[in-house]
Design a protein around this nucleic acid. Sequence first.
DNA 1: CAGCATCCAGCTTGATACTG
DNA 2: CAGTATCAAGCTGGATGCTG
Lengths: 133, 133
Amino acid sequence: MTTTERRPEGQEFPFNVFAKACPSRGTLEHVTGRWGALTLGSLYEGSLRFNELRRRVDGVSEKMLSQTLHALERDGLVLREAQPTNPPRVDYELTPLGREVAERLLALIRHVEASMDAVLQARDRYDETRGAR
Amino acid sequence: MTTTERRPEGQEFPFNVFAKACPSRGTLEHVTGRWGALTLGSLYEGSLRFNELRRRVDGVSEKMLSQTLHALERDGLVLREAQPTNPPRVDYELTPLGREVAERLLALIRHVEASMDAVLQARDRYDETRGAR
DNA sequence: CAGCATCCAGCTTGATACTG
DNA sequence: CAGTATCAAGCTGGATGCTG
């Protein structure tokens, strides 16, 4: 009856991203954040080394990539494998959980990419009608 | 042959979110941003007024919600319908395009929520092994 | 190669006050 | 109700320099 009810009966999740205090909101932000999304998307195609990732994710800084990878690793979405060689070699790959998440994420990304013509047209219309403000 | 090839043959999209300059990256950020995601998710269940949205999206400020709605409206994902009544009444709802995007987004959100037990366990493991640094 | 530590500019955000 | 305007503050994130 309350307005906070958000789940169909009998399928209640304990976690609700719409609630400020829910930890799922933090994980969603790691996943959908600017660099998190692109990192997961890149790793979906296979494991990559640090600097390979850096090149794939156009525009990411070393610091941000490192930070992003730590968050994703801590959340159990990315696996870090360091070879004790010289020079050092570290491979990053998705965990099974990371793969599931990345699949959904990529479905979203691909759909956004495929919608960009419509989006750009919508922007033009919007800017035209209210452009002069 | 180059490392920038990211699409299967014959199915090339003109927009690639992995490229820094691609406008799809901006739209993806509107969609997946902290408030964008929760706004789209809320509107998926039906049209809502400004302050209803504000209550649904726990923690959003007036300013951020307003800003978020503008971006989503401009991208053609949200429709703003203002009734010229007094007091004013404004309803926000998803466009067909917004609906398609929100569907993918919600699939992601639900999966993250459903994975939180595993995520929390992964965090515990991570903090335990490297916690003392 | 694969990072971490530090510094700091600037953008994002939240609070507050005000308008139609 | 449905916003806009303004301002301070804090966090994000880039540049730089250094380590193993």
